[in-house]
Amino acid sequence: MSIQGQLNQEQIAWRAAQDIEDGAYVNLGIGFPEKVAAYTIDGREPIFHTENGVLGFGRAPEKGEEDWDLINAGKKAITLKPGAAFFDHATSFAMIRGGHLDVAILGALQVASNGDIANWRVGDKGVPAVGGAMDLVNGAKRVAVLTDHVTRDGKPKLVEACTFPLTGVGCVTRVYTSLAVIDVDIANARFVVLEKLPHLSMDDLQSVTGAKLHVEGDVGALQVPELS
């Protein structure tokens, strides 16, 4: 099935940003999840954490203004906001594992209905690299995933059981996809649809999802502004 009007990455990031509360401590994964910062809601002030020991960083510096001692986990130059703090790596991961982060937002290869996530390795070829992903999925109060609903060749990314190597078990609490917002009921291993694109039927959504979708009460309309 080809799907019209799927959300692009900016729109998925915008939708995830709507759920970040004022004062929340937030870690955004490298790449796609970093886009969430740009859609912070006026009047809310989330505090962004990066694994390499900074709380309270802001936008990227202008080109030529980089200080390479001041980078994020993606090794990109950052700037500080007033009230920022530095700390060593053990303290940084105490924040993560100790349950002090309100939300970690990551990308994923697959998410299973029991909350398992695979996002660090496709197979056993090449050089494996894990970084902080396995710590983040086990520590933050909320673990949210941003992803296209299906792979480039149309395979479901929301599945009954992950086939790629796991990053963590029973940890993802919400998935923001190009078609829907879906909660993970980890205890009962169920995907629960919160919102879907208005023109999409539940049958359409189910047909591109690799595990049974559940509904509790009303399914909201997933409505986002035009962004590119």
Binding site: H89, S92, F93, P128, V130, G131, M134, D135
Partner: peptide
């Protein structure tokens, strides 16, 4: 690494720190 000339012990970042 791909030529098997170096051994890798991959450790999650927070585990490495701890």
């Amino acid at each position: 690494y791909l030529a098997d000339e170096i051994e890798l012990e991959l450790v999650p970042q927070g585990t490495l720190a701890e």
